[in-house]
Amino acid sequence: MKTLTKIALIIIPTITLSMTAAAHDPSMHAKKAEKADCSKMDHSKMDMKDPVAVAMMKKCMKQNEKSKDKMDHSKMKNMDHSKMKKNEHSATKKDEHDH
């Protein structure tokens, strides 16, 4: 067998396998994905008791830390900034949970 063939036989499966291993890492998604379009958000319509609204705020604050002061928070209903802290582990903060 030619050396080239041997190399190919080793390299092709290795690359294929390592690619499948990486395919499910969320950071892979970032490459072709577009940025969140936060400009169309209508804050006057957002109810901060709604997880969807809170999640959108989190996303947009993370995306653009510097411009967060330009948002007009005064119009939002039930705004609670403590729920939007940049901590990753809000899932563990079960204490402020209300049903």
């Binding site: 970032a30 577009e34 940025k35 969140a36 379009d37 169309k40 969807v52 959108m56 996303k59 993370k62």
Partner: peptide, 18 residues
């Protein structure tokens, strides 16, 4: 669970990667 209630704009913000 929330998907049927989302507008295209909300969907875009929630699903975009940063």
């Amino acid at each position: 669970k929330r998907l049927p209630t989302l507008t295209p704009e909300q969907y875009q913000v929630l699903t975009a990667v940063e």
